[in-house]
Amino acid sequence: MIHLDHLNYHYTRSRPLFTDLQLYLSPGHIYGLLGRNGAGKTTLLRLIAGLLFPKDGICEVGNWTPSDRHPDFLSDVFFMPEEIYVPDLKITQFLRNYAPFYPKFDRTQFDKFIGTFGLRADENMRKLSYGQKKKVMLGFGLASGASVLILDEPTNGLDIPSKAQFRQILSESITDDRIIILSTHQVRDVSTLIERLILLDNGKILFQDSLLRVSEKLAFNIYPKEPKAGSVYYAERIPGGYMAVEDRAASVEEDTDIDLEVLFNALITDPGKITQLFNVQA
């Protein structure tokens, strides 16, 4: 469980980033954290990981206060940032040196992940490409047995086959007691993974709900011409027509695939109507 209550954070006093931020994340789900540049996504992830300290309010992860950086907390939360650091070691040495810090580390699982990603354990981590380093750290994080996995832009640097492998590995890794948070701008890479969506804008949670509910409430239809307002909340031009987000009750098509990018744009452009539909305060 991750619980943020009346959390305040700022880098400079004159520009508060989070004011009275409220968030509750329950185990067993993959959360997608979306937001514009500078919305505070990475800051939020760092607060949850105990790498930044709230100025005020509550931030709890399980029974831990992240800013304490208790060793048991640190071994139960794995944060893979966008820019990753790897020591000048071979993968096997890295494992020998760092896996013992994670009591639930599963070597067999790690070897499986590394094998899936086509990496050799005797390779020096510093000599790997950016994407390969990410794969090693991702495999390490998943095998660490951490209950909370925080991945900031996890698909950046991954080639096309690796993205599919990443999705497969991650979907297999979610368990009832694990929370996975993905923060990304590459929504198409993770759209099939995300179960619950959190949209952060200007330091506030603009929208938070499950994609199951989104599919129950909204439809994503393509129109050859710009659709008229009414049940359409938002429409954007795409090659060959318009992609519209509309009330599913009024939609001609019943089952449509969720387009996260369009949903994101719809929520950013005019959050009022959609959040009202979900009975969430904007």
Partner: peptide
């Protein structure tokens, strides 16, 4: 010195050991 970059600092501070250790 491993904390001289953001990524290195993140790695070291996240390492599951106490401050005293």
């Amino acid at each position: 010195n491993n904390m001289s970059t953001d990524a290195g600092r993140q790695f070291y501070l996240s390492l599951p050991a106490s401050n005293l250790e």
